[in-house]
């Protein structure tokens, strides 16, 4: 390998490192700030302290406010509910749109895409009337369903794309062997689109985990049902001076589980291909 070739091999890494520089610097500050009394630029002022992280041990605002673990559990349950429902429903729908011919199929696809053009904040009032009619206002189920609904266009389109990429031959063989459509979908097709499911699961989980506008709009108060993002706002204020160290600490705490979740699913994304193309005809 010549020097020139070696240099060329370094170029992609150089581009990557430069591209993530602001991210690295910014997150370095976040971590630093959560452990220092104060910071000026990247320079710490004052002492190393753990006080911003004390919320892990005791509720920072006294007994009336839920502990961080309770809030974390709530957030996890909402995000998990959302991930499961979004993946299931999208996978069902994506399959039908990819594999079955029925009237309105094309129209449905273009329409779901166009729905994404409606800013969710403007649909809140309309959504409220629906929740009210269903008697789901101020309930966790209502919040979960609304978030699932807003995630649908994305999920359906993503899943359809992945189903399109799966060979028909294998499926046909299974159908000829007498399997039902649902069985084929579950046993034959779904395993071959794990990367797609992982991608959708990541996005669904993140949007559930960081959800703020919808839980805040459709529930009363941020008490025992609070999610992490809603809880985080207790640390902030505009004119009220903010405890920046605590905001960054809670923010990092909220970030860590999703990052771990991502690492886990990303692994799945990568490994699925290592054993060669199993799904081929």
């Amino acid at each position: 390998m010549t020097v020139r070739q070696r240099l060329w091999r370094g170029v992609p890494y150089l581009i990557l490192v430069l591209s993530v520089l602001p991210i690295i610097v910014g997150y370095f500050w976040l971590v630093l700030s959560s452990f220092m009394t104060r910071t000026e630029g990247l320079l710490p002022v004052g002492n190393l302290t753990l006080k911003h992280w004390s919320f892990l041990l005791e509720p920072p605002f006294g007994r009336g406010y839920p502990s961080i673990w309770r809030v974390t559990l709530n957030t996890f349950l909402i995000a998990a509910f959302m991930t499961i429902v979004v993946v299931l429903v999208s996978a069902l729908t994506g399959y039908a749109l990819s594999r079955l011919n029925f009237p309105g199929r094309k129209g449905f696809l273009s329409l779901t895409l166009i729905l994404h053009a409606f800013p969710s904040v403007t649909l809140l009032i309309g959504t409220f009337f629906v929740l009210r009619a269903l008697n789901l206002y101020n309930t966790s189920l209502g919040v979960g369903l609304v978030m699932v609904g807003f995630e649908m266009p994305f999920g359906i389109w993503l899943m359809k794309g992945f189903f399109d990429g799966v060979s028909w031959d294998m499926e046909r063989a299974a159908l000829i062997d007498g399997a039902s459509r649902l069985q084929v979908w579950w046993q034959v097709i779904l395993p071959t689109i794990k990367p797609g499911i992982a991608a959708l699961a990541i996005f669904a989980f993140i949007s559930g985990w960081n959800a703020w506008l919808i839980p805040k709009t459709f529930t009363i108060g941020a008490g025992q049902q609070a999610t992490l993002s809603v809880y985080l706002q207790n640390f902030q204020g505009e004119t009220v001076a903010v405890d920046w160290g605590s905001v960054t600490a809670v923010g990092l705490f909220q970030l860590i589980p999703v990052a771990i979740f991502f690492i886990f699913t990303q692994d799945l994304l990568l490994n699925i291909y290592s054993g060669g193309a199993k799904g081929g005809a």
Binding site: F128, Y137, N138, I220, A222, F235, Q236
Partner: peptide, 22 residues
């Protein structure tokens, strides 16, 4: 029920809760 929500937000919540009878 208390938390650090915005002044406008708490009133939007009040309007919706009122409409829902809560």
């Amino acid at each position: 029920i208390q938390d650090n929500t915005g002044f406008g937000d708490i009133m939007q919540e009040f309007a919706l809760a009122y409409e829902d009878g809560q």
